[in-house]
Amino acid sequence: MSGSPVPPDAPARPAGPAAALAAASEHYLRGEPIEMSALAAELGVGRATLYRWVGSRERLLGAVLAEMTERTYRVAARGVAGDGAERIIRVLDRFMRAVVDAEPLKAFTERETRLFIRLATMPGTIEDRATELLTKEIQAEIDRGRLSVPLPTRTLAQAIVRVADSFMYAHYLGGNRPEIDQALEVVELLLRPCGESSGPPER
């Protein structure tokens, strides 16, 4: 549990920002709250030191969610068939469904819905990480000659991330449920020439 004393024979955790992120991520994955006083005690440092490492609780949570975004994306992209726009749409389909089904995220959003929406939908660490991952994915398809896009790659990736977020988190923004199918329809329009369509992605 959060705040439990560390056993005396437990291996020493390396100090620094990376250790703080790793410890916070462990609590997140267990569905536990991330409290700064308890985290500092767990790491064997004072609150002032922890804040010096991570900047603020909100910044630390943003870093944790960005790390989870990357982990989920890499799992979603593993073994996906197809190429060009078809591959990217399939990856996004798997990624978005994995995100909305993730139990740690459900636990976090039940406790801190407004904070999550602010972190997830505004420019910042999470959007930057998702944009970076998608930029690489799109550029790889361009480099293979399997995709041609009318916008700079990063601009397109950022637009797709923002579209995906607005639909994926629709249930937190006043809607009844995540609208992943609608998000994929819009992404397909951004990735494909007018009139070209592959139909819904296979799951």
Rank of each mutant, 00 (worst) to 15 (best):
V6S: 08
A81N: 14
L156W: 00
L61T: 14
G124A: 06
L43H: 01
V187Y: 05
L92W: 07
P193V: 04
I142R: 05
A107Y: 07
P152M: 08
P104V: 06
A48H: 11
S2H: 12
S166K: 04
V161R: 02
A76N: 02
T72P: 05
S2M: 13
V6R: 08
R144A: 15
A157K: 00
L119P: 08
D83W: 11
S166R: 14
Q139G: 05
L61F: 09
E42G: 08
L50E: 02
D93W: 15
T109R: 13
V186Q: 13
V149D: 04
S4Q: 11
E58Y: 00
G55M: 00
V161N: 00
R52Y: 09
L65K: 02
E112H: 11
E70K: 08
V161A: 01
E67H: 11
E26W: 06
R146N: 15
A120H: 07
V91Q: 09
G175R: 13
M1L: 12
P7K: 04
L190N: 06
D93H: 15
R94L: 10
R74H: 11
T113Q: 15
P201D: 07
T125Q: 12
P123F: 04
E32N: 03
V100W: 02
P150N: 10
A183Q: 05
V149Q: 05
Y51N: 15
R177C: 03
V161D: 04
G82N: 03
D181M: 15
A159K: 02
D165T: 05
E132Y: 10
S148Y: 11
L173K: 09
P33L: 03
F108C: 08
A120Q: 06
A120I: 01
G79L: 03
A76C: 09
G46S: 11
R74P: 04
P14C: 07
G3K: 05
R114T: 14
A157F: 00
D181Q: 14
A22W: 00
A20P: 12
A183V: 13
R162A: 04
I180A: 03
R47W: 02
E26D: 13
E137L: 06
P5Q: 10
H171Q: 11
L191G: 03
I138L: 05
L147G: 09
E35Q: 15
P33G: 08
V75Q: 06
G44H: 01
P5A: 12
E112S: 11
A23Q: 10
E188S: 10
L105I: 09
A102R: 06
I89L: 15
A48L: 04
E58Q: 11
